[in-house]
Design a protein around this nucleic acid. Structure first.
Length: 257
DNA sequence: GCGACAG
DNA sequence: ATCTTGTCGC
């Protein structure tokens, strides 16, 4: 098959995507803008959203895009939507947003239309914010397109700007004692790109938290910790758990097709 | 050439 | 991202 017979070559697509990231990056706000963020107990925060895209075993195209909204501080489900979508863009490290973001923004827009009262006041995103090759990960991307405060929550360290998952890094992880302990992730450029967070007492692997949009890193880390019953913050965990029948596998008699 | 590679 | 099984510990 002539895989690249149609459409622009990958390197042209990547160059276009890089330009788009650079342009949108200029609009990122990396400090607190909301009243509830000023209080250490987050008085005035009532709704926290989470988004995630989950996949089916052997299928690179079909996936389930999920948006949930939880009450705060109870962390009870107020709203959830799980929808099967067809992904078109490939996964390329540094360009996750171009694969996933349109489906998640669509979900936010449907929520706005159907239940505007349930619009989350902050959105937790699977992946990185400014902890990214060009300082503009998927959490920033969603933040700019929706104008919602967003926080990037990654399960693995993205090794950019000199950050490395080396022995020194592993040693720092071992020194995290209890849930809520952190250490900063400083790149070669000298700025703090994010924080490693031990999200609960018995979690050996930290989360990597970074600013997406309209929230400070300090507030982001504090909020993530407040949302963790287990390692993964509840809004993302609920989004990743499909309760509906949407993700049922292809019927057995169709498997060979 | 080699290592790295969020989801 | 996804699959896989039991195992250990509270």
């Amino acid at each position: 098959m002539a895989h690249e017979a149609f459409g622009p070559p990958l390197r042209e697509t990547l160059s276009r995507w890089k330009r788009e990231q650079a342009q949108l990056k200029a609009s990122v706000i990396d400090h607190d803008t909301e009243a509830w963020q000023q209080k250490t107990d987050f008085t005035g925060l009532f709704r926290v959203g989470g988004v995630d895209i989950s996949f089916i075993k052997g299928d690179d195209v079909r996936a389930c895009a999920s948006l949930v909204v939880l009450s705060y501080p109870e962390l009870e489900v107020l709203y959830e939507e799980h929808r099967m979508v067809n992904l078109t863009a490939p996964y390329i490290s540094g360009f996750l947003a171009f694969r996933e973001v349109s489906f998640l923004v669509d979900a936010i827009q449907r929520l706005q239309k159907k239940k505007p009262d349930l619009m989350p006041q902050v959105l937790l995103v699977d992946g990185n914010g400014v902890l990214h090759h060009r300082g503009f990960g998927v959490a920033c991307h969603i933040g700019i397109l929706t104008d919602l405060p967003c926080i990037g929550v990654a399960k693995k360290l993205l090794q950019v700007d000199g950050l490395k998952n080396n022995d020194l890094h592993k040693e720092k992880i071992q020194h995290l004692k209890t849930g809520g302990d952190t250490f900063p992730l400083m790149g070669d450029s000298g700025s703090i790109l994010g924080m490693a967070l031990k999200s609960h007492n018995k979690s050996s692997k930290p989360l990597y938290i970074s600013v997406g949009h309209k929230v400070s890193l300090e507030t982001a880390v504090h909020l993530i910790q407040a949302c963790c019953r287990y390692r993964i913050p509840e809004p993302i965990r609920q989004a990743a758990t499909v309760r509906s029948s949407l993700q049922v596998a292809v019927p057995a008699h169709c498997e060979h097709l």
